[in-house]
């Protein structure tokens, strides 16, 4: 069975969903609602949000590394405007940035 191709390619701007579901999720709060850029596709890994509750059939999900300008994460960031934080984020937490070319 072929799987759908990853939705995003490296260099694409993406926004992290601003959702706060209960339970075990691996998307840090500090990047929710923030916009970054896909650094690379890490591959497919079983969804930790299902795995954490003993679901051994957890769906493989595309995992990305997304880079954020530190100044976009923290408005009062004290370092350089070139500083970045790169975070591993699953596809179902990401949406395209509206207004960007598809």
């Amino acid at each position: 069975m072929s799987r759908p191709a990853p939705l995003f390619t490296p260099g694409t701007r993406v926004r992290v969903h601003e959702r706060f579901p209960p339970g075990h999720v691996r998307t840090p709060w500090y990047c929710r609602g923030k916009t970054g850029e896909v650094e690379r596709i890490c591959g497919r890994f079983r969804n930790p949000e299902q795995l954490a509750y003993g679901n051994r059939e957890a769906t493989p999900e595309v995992l990305y590394r997304v880079g954020f300008a530190s100044t976009s994460l923290w408005p009062d960031y004290g370092g350089s405007k070139h500083d970045r934080v790169e975070i591993e984020i699953y596809e179902h937490w990401l949406e395209p940035v509206s207004g960007d070319p598809a």
């Binding site: 691996r26 998307t27 840090p28 890490c42 591959g43 890994f45 930790p48 995992l63 590394r65 530190s70 370092g79 350089s80 070139h82 500083d83 970045r84 934080v85 790169e86 975070i87 591993e88 984020i89 699953y90």
Partner: peptide
């Protein structure tokens, strides 16, 4: 050096 950029890697998942 202020001209050196910092790249912080947050190991949030499977890497």
């Amino acid at each position: 050096d202020p001209n050196v950029a910092v790249r912080v890697h947050d190991s949030t998942a499977d890497m």
